[in-house]
Amino acid sequence: MTALPPVVDEPTWREALAELRVREKAATRELDAIAAARRRLPAVKLPEYRLTAEDDSTVTLAEVFDGRSQLVTYHHMWSDGNRWQCPGCTGATASWTRPDLLSELDVRFVIVTNGPMDEVLAYKKRVGNQMTWFSSAGSTFGADVDAGPGEGFAYNVFLRDGDDVYRTWTTTGRGAEQFMLSFAIADVLPYGRQEEWQDVPEGWPQEETYKRWLSSKDVAAMYGDPDA
């Protein structure tokens, strides 16, 4: 039998929704306040890191901005020689197919990984990824921004002034969920993410965390060339 919430008449439903809306609006105001505080964070000036671009050229971190003043990087977990990389990273980056929509905000959004570029390009094709990738192999850049070899993923934000680059913000773990459309949609669904840690009514479907996440092979089968 399908798990259902209490079924009521429309006026009762609208009353309950209005009560929830008060909390939702309070959360929105708090997020606005956090964003305002984030815009007032100090910054750290970085050295001139050099990364490898997809055409195998070497570029400075300032050049990665491609003329824009702001840069967001997603640092994709990587294990050299592995055919399939982190499924969470693979699934997350598969969802960003039009990052140039951010161009009017004077920002570029790219992927950085510690893997060698030849493996990176093969993997990009295999899983059908449409982002622009850079490799920090041979550089301390990944480690210096909290995403070194053997470490986890991270988001980082940078600001450029000429050839000078400043690190302004970073997050990882559940702080990364604000970038994920799939989580935002799941959290407004009656059953939510259907993971065992979530607070749900009795009888709601729940499974162990990550069980419903796509594997890297799943992403390749949907969007890429799994035989590449």
Results as ranks from 00 to 15, higher is better:
residue 10 E to K: 08
residue 207 E to H: 15
residue 137 A to P: 01
residue 69 S to E: 13
residue 204 W to D: 09
residue 213 W to T: 10
residue 75 H to R: 04
residue 18 A to P: 12
residue 74 Y to I: 02
residue 49 Y to I: 12
residue 222 M to F: 10
residue 160 R to H: 03
residue 228 A to C: 01
residue 171 T to Q: 01
residue 49 Y to T: 06
residue 154 A to N: 13
residue 164 D to L: 14
residue 41 L to Q: 14
residue 53 A to T: 08
residue 125 K to L: 02
residue 139 S to V: 04
residue 68 R to D: 04
residue 225 D to L: 01
residue 161 D to F: 07
residue 143 A to H: 09
residue 219 V to S: 05
residue 64 V to I: 08
residue 198 Q to N: 04
residue 196 E to K: 02
residue 150 G to W: 02
residue 93 T to P: 04
residue 14 R to G: 07
residue 116 P to V: 06
residue 58 T to D: 02
residue 8 V to Y: 10
residue 76 H to T: 07
residue 162 G to H: 12
residue 176 A to K: 01
residue 167 R to Y: 14
residue 77 M to N: 07
residue 172 T to F: 14
residue 131 M to S: 05
residue 71 L to M: 02
residue 79 S to N: 09
residue 91 G to A: 00
residue 61 L to T: 03
residue 153 F to G: 05
residue 222 M to W: 05
residue 16 A to H: 06
residue 118 D to G: 11
residue 60 T to S: 14
residue 202 E to W: 03
residue 19 E to C: 09
residue 226 P to K: 05
residue 81 G to K: 11
residue 103 S to W: 11
residue 183 F to E: 11
residue 103 S to H: 14
residue 220 A to C: 07
residue 79 S to Q: 05
residue 164 D to S: 12
residue 60 T to G: 14
residue 53 A to I: 10
residue 197 W to P: 03
residue 173 G to M: 06
residue 210 Y to T: 13
residue 207 E to S: 15
residue 187 D to H: 08
residue 21 R to N: 03
residue 147 A to L: 00
residue 3 A to P: 14
residue 209 T to L: 13
residue 197 W to N: 05
residue 77 M to C: 02
residue 102 L to Q: 03
residue 151 E to W: 14
residue 193 R to Y: 02
residue 142 G to R: 06
residue 111 I to L: 12
residue 48 E to D: 13
residue 178 Q to T: 13
residue 215 S to R: 10
residue 114 N to M: 04
residue 131 M to I: 10
residue 13 W to L: 02
residue 24 E to P: 05
residue 152 G to S: 11
residue 188 V to Q: 00
residue 220 A to I: 04
residue 3 A to W: 15
residue 67 G to H: 10
residue 202 E to P: 08
residue 36 A to M: 11
residue 190 P to T: 05
residue 189 L to N: 00
residue 163 D to C: 04
residue 126 R to S: 03
residue 209 T to Q: 10
residue 196 E to V: 08
residue 162 G to N: 12
residue 49 Y to M: 06
residue 134 F to W: 08
residue 159 L to I: 15
residue 172 T to K: 06
residue 199 D to Q: 14
residue 92 A to C: 13
residue 118 D to P: 01
residue 117 M to Y: 09
residue 163 D to R: 04
residue 217 K to I: 15
residue 210 Y to W: 14
residue 92 A to T: 12
residue 180 M to G: 10
residue 62 A to Y: 00
residue 97 T to F: 09
residue 204 W to E: 10
residue 108 R to H: 08
residue 32 D to F: 01
residue 212 R to F: 06
residue 86 C to H: 10
residue 107 V to N: 07
residue 101 L to A: 15
residue 13 W to N: 09
residue 207 E to Y: 15
residue 216 S to A: 15
residue 154 A to E: 12
residue 46 L to R: 04
residue 169 W to A: 15
residue 36 A to T: 10
residue 122 A to T: 05
residue 120 V to P: 00
residue 67 G to K: 10
residue 54 E to G: 07
residue 109 F to S: 04
residue 203 G to M: 05
residue 209 T to A: 07
